[in-house]
């Protein structure tokens, strides 16, 4: 999967699941604030990434993923 294709798919599924506009999901935007995630819904985002891309984010890795750009990079490097 090309990186642009992965980003497009990621934006679509996140916007759909968390009911935000796709335009709000930009590389620099903070994930938690943009998707209005709390401790219960954060696990949904991690589960979605696992189900849609087959990429598992470990407990110890979640703190390093702050923006959508961080998430794209994390997923893409594990898909490659």
């Amino acid at each position: 999967m090309e990186k642009n294709e992965m980003i497009e798919k990621m934006v679509t599924i996140l916007a759909d699941e968390f009911e935000v506009e796709t335009s709000e999901i930009t590389a620099d935007a903070p994930i938690k604030e943009t998707l209005h995630l709390d401790s219960l819904s954060l696990v949904d985002m991690v589960g979605l990434v696992d189900e849609e891309f087959g990429v598992t984010i470990q407990n110890s890795e979640i703190a390093t993923i702050r923006t959508f750009g961080d998430l794209y990079e994390f997923v893409y490097t594990r898909l490659a």
Partner: peptide
């Protein structure tokens, strides 16, 4: 087990 973050398991 789909995901586990902090004390929450999905």
């Amino acid at each position: 087990i789909v995901s586990e973050i902090n004390d929450i398991t999905l």
